[in-house]
Design a protein around this nucleic acid. Structure first.
Length: 272
DNA sequence: AGGCGTTCCTGGGGGC
DNA sequence: TGCCCCCAGGAACGCC
């Protein structure tokens, strides 16, 4: 499932080939793929749309046009890539045609992915929190947030309005690395552990981007699988030995998600 | 405020 | 082999 490192990997693969290109048409192959607009409306005043650049905000791939943006969210199984093939894949959700006969294909088996059209980032920014790999992600701010909320720590980390980019895999990895049980309450976690969690999030996301993401389930760029899956410490390792203490990794259900935990290494902070 | 269930989807795996 | 059922989950939404 694409999280921050996977989305960043897609962006990195698209920024050079797409910058300066022109979109000549946009069509839906799955009717619901365009969430808040109809593509025909974009071509009423102009026959083509110039792409300025591509970047990431939260888990969105932002295609910057001259005075607007296309925001692509991959959700669970979305893939966005350039193709010169004339035959479209079975699960194509949208086809974005470019000049020089190139296609930008949005392929999505489970059809959760969406494309949005906005004038700017305002709407996305109001609903989304801090970028964990930016200067805004400061230990003091993170501590203040965790201590001010009486929330399950896994739920809090998955909440995109607080810190963006983390999903089920990297939340489990970050909590394991910092020795915090995912069923802990945020305001009861000691400051030292919050500091470790802050560091773990940065380290894990950075290393995952360097490995071009995790290939659990469906993620790949240009058919190339991410390499982070071999570096996962707890996620998907039910009954395997904990890399730290050799006890068995267990699988729980927390926040409605499959959650992997080492009960020995990860301390639970709950009110007795 | 925050937890929880529901919805959207399809492919894959387990059970028989 | 084949069929049925359940599970995977990001995010929005409604309810308590």
């Amino acid at each position: 499932m694409p999280e921050l490192p996977e989305v960043q990997t897609v962006v990195n693969s698209l920024v050079k080939p797409l910058s300066g290109r022109k979109i000549t048409s946009i069509s839906a192959h799955w009717p619901k793929v365009f969430d808040n607009f109809h593509p025909d409306t974009l071509f009423k005043k102009q026959s083509q749309l110039k792409i300025i650049t591509v970047f990431r905000r939260a888990k969105f791939i932002i295609i910057q046009l001259e005075d607007s943006i296309l925001a692509v969210h991959l959700r669970m199984t979305g893939k966005l890539y350039i193709s010169e093939e004339s035959i479209l894949p079975k699960h194509t959700s949208a086809l974005i045609k470019l000049d020089k006969k190139m296609n930008l294909i949005f392929e999505d088996v489970r059809k959760f992915g969406r494309i949005y059209f906005f004038k700017n980032l305002d709407i996305i920014n109001t609903r989304h929190g801090i970028e964990p790999l930016s200067d805004m992600f400061q230990i003091k701010i993170f501590q203040k947030i965790l201590l001010s909320k009486k929330r399950n720590i896994k739920a809090l980390l998955l909440d995109q309005s607080i810190v963006v980019g983390l999903g089920n895999i990297y939340v489990d990895e970050s909590l394991w690395m910092s020795g915090i049980h995912p069923n802990s309450l945020s305001y009861l976690i000691p400051k030292l552990k919050i500091k470790r969690l802050h560091q773990s999030i940065i380290i894990i996301l950075t290393e995952a981007i360097e490995s071009k993401g995790t290939t659990i389930i469906d993620f790949s760029v240009n058919g190339q699988s991410g390499k982070y899956s071999s570096k996962l410490s707890v996620y998907g390792r039910k009954n395997d030995q904990c890399l730290n203490c050799k006890s068995r990794i267990i699988k729980l259900r927390i926040c409605g998600r499959g959650t992997y935990v080492c009960n020995i290494c990860q301390q639970k902070y709950l009110k007795k």
